[in-house]
C-alpha cells in the first residue's frame, strides 16, 4: 500500500469528502482553544513548495501545519534553485532526500502534483496546479456551505466569472456535483470553456437570469492579465456586465450568500459593499481553510508503517 495523496476533487468519493469535512469540523474547535495547538503531527515533516505566488493558501497551510505540531520548510520559486534551472523532479527529490513526509505543492503547470506523486515516496497535496484543480479550496468552500445550510444536497450554486482559467471553479464543480448540489456557471463567452455542459452544469450568459433562485453566488477572481490577452474589451465593461454589485443583488427575492476565493479585486468582480456586506461569508471561508487543511494533513499522515 502506497502513500495517500490529495491531488484533486475529480473522482473523490462522497464518503471521503464527508470524512474530510467532519474531521475539519472537529479541528475548528481546536482553533478556539486557549492553546490553539495539538501535538498530533509531532515528528512529521512537511515541505511547502510554492512555485507560484500565494499568500492565503501558503499561510493557511503553514498555520495548519504549525497547529498540528508538524515541522515545516517553505520553498518559494523566487528564492530557490528553481531559478538556477533545477527541474521540478530534482528539487522535489532533494527535499525528499532530507526525509520529508508530506509535500504541499502549488505550481503553474497542471498535473505537477500528480507528477510528484508518481516520483516521490511522500504524500503529495495539491495546493493549486495551473488551471486544473485547487482541491483544498473546494473543500473549505464545501465546509463553509455545509455550516451555513446544514447540507449540500439541493443547493443551487452560481459561479460567476472567468471559468476557463479557474482551478477553483473546476474543483468546486466536481465537489458540489458529487455532494448533490446543482451548479450554474455565468461569465463572458470568451472565458467559458467549450462543452462545459458535459460536467453537468447549466451555463448562462446573462447574470441577472443566472442569479434567480441562487442560494450561493460564488464570485471568481478576475485575472487582470486576461484583458491584455484580448479576452475582455475593458475592465469597466466586465464590471458592468459581470460585476456583483449591491444594485444587482437588491433585485433578488431569495436569501443567498456571497463567496469569493480571494484575493479580491474590489470594484471589479465585486464591489466593496457586497464583499463586506451581511451576506458575505468570505472571511468564514478563510477561517475554515485552516481547519480543512489540518484535517487533510491529519488524514494523510496515517499509515507510516505498512498496514
Amino acid at each position: 500500500m502506497g502513500r495517500e495523496h490529495l491531488l484533486g476533487i475529480e473522482g473523490m468519493p462522497a464518503e471521503r469528502i464527508k470524512l474530510i469535512l467532519d474531521t475539519a469540523e472537529s479541528f475548528k474547535e481546536v482553533l478556539e482553544r486557549p492553546i490553539r495547538k495539538v501535538p498530533t503531527l509531532r515528528g512529521v515533516s512537511v515541505a511547502n513548495l510554492f512555485f507560484e505566488p500565494s499568500t492565503r493558501t501558503r499561510v493557511s497551510f503553514e498555520l495548519a501545519e504549525k497547529r498540528l505540531s508538524a515541522e515545516l520548510v517553505n520553498v518559494s520559486a523566487a528564492s530557490s534553485s528553481v531559478l538556477k534551472g533545477e527541474t521540478l523532479k530534482d528539487t522535489a527529490r532533494n527535499i525528499e532526500a532530507m526525509k520529508v513526509d508530506i509535500v504541499v505543492i502549488r505550481h503553474s503547470a497542471p498535473g505537477a502534483p500528480h507528477f510528484l506523486a508518481r516520483c516521490l515516496e511522500s504524500s503529495v497535496i495539491n495546493a493549486g496546479d495551473g488551471a486544473h484543480e485547487h482541491p483544498t479550496q473546494a473543500l473549505l468552500d464545501l465546509l463553509t456551505l455545509r455550516e451555513r445550510f446544514g447540507e449540500l444536497k439541493g443547493l443551487r450554486v452560481v459561479i460567476v466569472g472567468d471559468i476557463t482559467y479557474s482551478r477553483v471553479a473546476r474543483s468546486n464543480i466536481w465537489g458540489l456535483k458529487r455532494m448533490g448540489a446543482s451548479v450554474a456557471l455565468c461569465g463572458p463567452p470568451t472565458l467559458m470553456p467549450l462543452r462545459v455542459e458535459g460536467m453537468g452544469v447549466e451555463v448562462y450568459h446573462n447574470l441577472d437570469q443566472a442569479l434567480q433562485g441562487a442560494d450561493v453566488i460564488y464570485v471568481l477572481r478576475l485575472q487582470l492579465e486576461r484583458q491584455k490577452e484580448g479576452l475582455l474589451p475593458s475592465l469597466r465593461e466586465y464590471t458592468n456586465q459581470w460585476g456583483i454589485t449591491a444594485q444587482r443583488l437588491t433585485k433578488l427575492k431569495q436569501k443567498f450568500i456571497i463567496m469569493h476565493p480571494g484575493p479580491l479585486n474590489r470594484g471589479i468582480e465585486i464591489t466593496p459593499e457586497v464583499a463586506d456586506g451581511p451576506y458575505s461569508v468570505i472571511l468564514d471561508q478563510v477561517t475554515n481553510g485552516v481547519a480543512v487543511r489540518m484535517a487533510i494533513l491529519y488524514l494523510l499522515s496515517g499509515g507510516k508503517v505498512e498496514g
Binding site: 495539538v38 501535538p39 498530533t40 491529519y298 488524514l299 499522515s301 496515517g302 499509515g303 507510516k304 505498512e306
Partner: peptide, 16 residues
C-alpha cells in the same frame, strides 16, 4: 485522538 502516542504506527487515522 489528537493526543495519542501511537498515531505514527497506525495504518488509518481514527475519526476525530
Amino acid at each position: 485522538n489528537l493526543y495519542r502516542d501511537d498515531f505514527q504506527t497506525r495504518a488509518e487515522q481514527p475519526v476525530v
